[in-house]
Design a binder for these strands. Structure first.
Ligand SMILES: [Mn+2]
Ligand SMILES: [Mn+2]
Ligand SMILES: [Zn+2]
Ligand SMILES: [Zn+2]
Lengths: 135, 135
DNA sequence: AATAGACTTGCGAAATATTCGCATTTTATC
DNA sequence: GATAAAATGCGAATATTTCGCAAGTCTATT
């Protein structure tokens, strides 16, 4: 049983074939698949799976904080397993998504919230850029 | 002629009654109105205005960088005049939007992009929090 | 292993936000 | 004021996501 499946079981979810397939797809993804992407990949394993189930499962996993739902302002959502916290830089020319992590940023964002009188619950940061010529 | 109207004219847009109304609504807003909000406020001035025109105008203004389109993950967009660059903290209990600005953050975000080999074109940061008890 | 009940699924329909086609109107220019 | 281009209103179309419901599946319990 995969670690993701274990977390589902612990949350009281029944382990169905469809959920196993979707978790496998998510676990194996190295990109940030859209619902349609997840659906297509899942269908290769189980052709009978429905896109409604993919939507429902991703929503559930999001509620359980097992995945992160991204809205890269494309009109639809992308998902990824919630593993190590990080952010994204989107290449405006190619659409490529570069991941990064920055401790200074994380500290700063906590401080900003605190100074405003708030406890920080969540945050999102996206950078949009174009590749610099190599110097 | 308002400063917003001037910028529209300079961009080659025809100044119609509808555009004037929408620009007035945007200029007078102190919140972050949705398309529906802008539509409702515009209708108070010109009852015949269509929501398609509001959508079209806001898209145009967005392309001209005269407004910022926000997606606070509510399923719809909010707009505000693109004046002084700033970010938002959304109160998860009340939905209230708190604006802030932080130079250190702006510098850091530039540095992160540069270190990744990118020229930063755009970025978005949102904080989500709950009010701290006053100490 | 059979049963029961709750949970889950597939399907198509519905909801929501946004865009589009097109006939008509308005604007800016001459 | 005539003209061409641009903009509008309307309703229909699109796209993504959610929902209702009947049928199927899972898991705990006999
Ligand atoms: Mn990522
Ligand atoms: Mn603002
Ligand atoms: Zn972070
Ligand atoms: Zn900024």
């Amino acid at each position: 049983m995969s670690s993701l499946e274990q977390r589902c079981a612990k949350a009281g979810l029944k382990m169905t074939g469809q959920r196993r397939v979707i978790l496998k797809v998510l676990g194996e993804a190295s990109d940030h698949p859209s619902v349609e992407d997840v659906y297509d990949r899942a269908k290769e394993v189980d052709d009978s799976i429905s896109i409604a189930t993919v939507y429902r499962t991703l929503s559930l996993l999001d509620e359980l904080d097992m995945v992160i739902r991204h809205e890269f302002q494309e009109g639809y959502s992308r998902y990824e397993v919630n593993d190590e916290h990080h952010h994204h830089l989107i290449d405006l020319d190619t659409g490529k998504v570069v991941e990064f992590q920055n401790d200074e940023l994380e500290a700063l964002k906590e401080k900003i919230a605190r100074d405003l009188g708030y406890e920080l619950i969540d945050h999102r940061l996206e950078l949009y850029g174009k590749k610099l010529p190599k110097s």
